[in-house]
Each structure stands twice: as structure tokens, then as C-alpha cells.
Amino acid sequence: MTTHRQPRLAARREALYAWAFVAPSLIGFLVFFAVPSVRGLLMSFTNWDLLRPAKFVGLANYVRLFSDADFLHALKVTAYYVLMNIPIQTTLALGIAVMMDKFSKSTIIRGILVLPWLLPNIVVALIWLWLLDPTMGFLNQIIMALGFQRQPFLGSTDQAMPTIAAINIWRHAGYTAILLYAGLQTIPKEIYEAASIDGANERQMFFGITIPLLRPVLVFVLVTTIIGSFQIFDTIAITTKGGPVDATRVVYWYIYEYAFVRFKMGYATTISVALFVILITITFIQMRYFNANSSDLD
């Protein structure tokens, strides 16, 4: 902007306005996110069963974390999920967004695409649990009608995690597409016109114009979906509960199990802190790598 020409008074006024603009959200942030999180961090240095006073144990929970094979397993399972979920979901969503932009601006089609996301989580999980049931599920009936062996899906240690990834892609792809579609609308069409006059083909325009100009939104989508998929929980809570055996015991389920099944809040928050550190690192790298603070319009 034009800061260089602004006198200092104006700069101070701008800062003052900025803080006034930020103030309400800052209150919300402090009261409902920051303070409880700090309390959570403190909790990780204690043994707390929720009901009796917490006992300070120093770094004991962290020492335990580093030798906890189940935690390592949970990390692996989570990473496996994220690596299946994110690339497929993002590509699919981008494809749908571009197609919506090109072929149809119909609200109906957009409505259909977000339908899965309109359904409550519980219902999504239950409906898929049923459609994918090994004996009575509709999908298996089709598979058998086509002459193949029926599949256990959520019931086998090999297929459970990919199946959960597929369910969540189904749920979120349309929604992600809507976000990206909204981002596509901010790209000035004149740029495409100019490029097409210069003889660029569709492919060149996609990689040369769409992707770079979509960057702020794309970064937003990637950052939020990656954070979200590291916190995959709902679908697992209803369909597999971490099983069969421990095939879908992701980090978030592991945290939940310690907090509300085993009532070991201290250790649960320790795992939470570890997950938090991992996510911060990933996000920080992403923001740096994508240079998220600017779009190529600048």
C-alpha cells in the first residue's frame, strides 16, 4: 500500500484502528482458545483423573510418551490416513471446482455437491457403515452381483483405514470444491482472455494462471484440511472405534481413549501437546513454502 507516503500519525492511527478491529476476536481467542490451552499444557505435567485433584509429576508423561509404542503406531496410522486423504480429496475438489466454473454455475449442482456435508457426522458414518456392511451392505451386493468376492471394508485391518479415508473424501470433496470455486471467482477473467489471445491452451492456462492465482485459497484449503485430517475422529468413533485390533487407532482417537475411556487426562493432554507441535511444524513449513501471505496479483 501507500505507507511510505503516510505521515507517522496516520500509521499510528492505522495501528489503533487495527487493534480495535482485532479486539473482539482477540477476546474470543483468549477466553475460549488460549486460556484453556495453557491450562491443558499445565495439565500435561500432572496426573489427573478428572475428578480428584491433579498430582504434579513433572516430565513423567513426556518420558512415557517417547517410549510409548502405541503412540508411535497411532502416529503412523494417522500419517497413512492423511497421505491417502489429502492428495485425493484436493485433486478431486480442484477438478470439480474447475468443472463447475467451466460448465455450470447452477446452484442446484453446487447444492448436490455439498449435500454430503449437510448431513450430520453421525448419520454419514452410520449410513456408510450400513452401505459397506460385509454381508448386508448395498455395495457388497453389487460386488457380488458382478461376480466378485464380497469385501470386509471396515471390518478388516487392511481395508479399514482406506475405507475411512474414502468416506471422508466423499464427505468433504464437494465442500472443498465449493471453497475452491469461490476462490476461482476472484480470478479476473480478463487474464484468461489475454492469455487465450496470446494462444495459450487450456493446460497452460490452468498451470500458468489458475493455480498461481488461486494460491491464497489453495493454501487455506490445504492448511485447514491437513490440520483437519490429522484430527480425524468422528467417523472412527462411530464406525471402528480404533479397531479392528488397532488398525484405525489414530492419534486423536488415542487421545480420546486416554481422556474419556481411561480417564487419564494428564497423559491425554501430553499426547495433545505432541500432536499440536507436529501440526504447528507442518503448518509453518506450508506457510513458508507457499508464501501464503501474498497472491500473485500483487
Partner: peptide, 8 residues
């Protein structure tokens, strides 16, 4: 199988 029984 366990898978058959587990889901529903």
C-alpha cells in the same frame, strides 16, 4: 467373520 459381525 468378525468383520461381518462388527459393523452392524
Amino acid at each position: 467373520t468378525l468383520a461381518d459381525v462388527k459393523s452392524l
